[in-house]
Amino acid sequence: MSKLRIVGLSVASADGHKILEDVSLEFAAGRRYGILGPNGSGKSSLVNALMGHPHYKITAGKILLGKEDIAHLPPDEKAQRGLFLGLQYPVEVEGVSWADFLRVALARQAGNRADFYEILNDLRRHASDLGFKNFDPDRDLNVGFSGGEKKRSEILQMLALRPRFAFLDEPDSGLDIDGAAALMAKLAKLDWPASLAVVTHNPQTLQSLQPDVIYVIKNGRLAASGGEPLIARLQSGGFKDL
């Protein structure tokens, strides 16, 4: 149960255009992952399809959580099984307060009896660590947030929901260097045994995270996988050599 295995996954856009083909990856509890690839490689599509985004269709393959194939479950059921996707472009929802939304999301987690008031207090501390200066949980969900605030808001939600398998799509885009550093530092020391995967086109992003495994997606396929030496190789040679 502590492993998420993607087996031979193929993904198409809603209109049938092929995006990913025969991709197999593995994510284990307590480990850090980098999902790298040039722009347009399909890495963002991968994590969105994984979560059940309606713009993507899984055309072949399995997503195994333990023995259960969750590939075609609706997003809420994937979330309830511990998956989390931090969006590259979080959407705005008017009239729904950030805190109310989070409270409902927490309430949907089986067996979660955590005190919401305490969670909010923790989040205020995390927000300050992340440089989220005007964090106000009573504001409407992402409405009027700056690009950087939206990304920080995603991380705060993750910290509250404590998912078993977190995927963050370009979490540092929209942040300045200091902001990105604070965010990666926060991700490097999560206090629960999550599997954490960061999607990025920039190998440097991953430096402070020190990922255990790197997956490189290129032209819709898994082009390489490996440990630290692979990052070094990407940093010097880029994606073109793979």
Partner: peptide, 24 residues
């Protein structure tokens, strides 16, 4: 809808949250 669902809200709940937010 996907955004709310991806945080664990069933579709009907996500929908009513969006609509209730709209009329708020």
């Amino acid at each position: 809808l996907f955004y709310l669902a991806s945080r664990g809200l069933p579709a009907a709940e996500a929908l009513s949250m969006i609509v209730n937010g709209f009329v708020e």
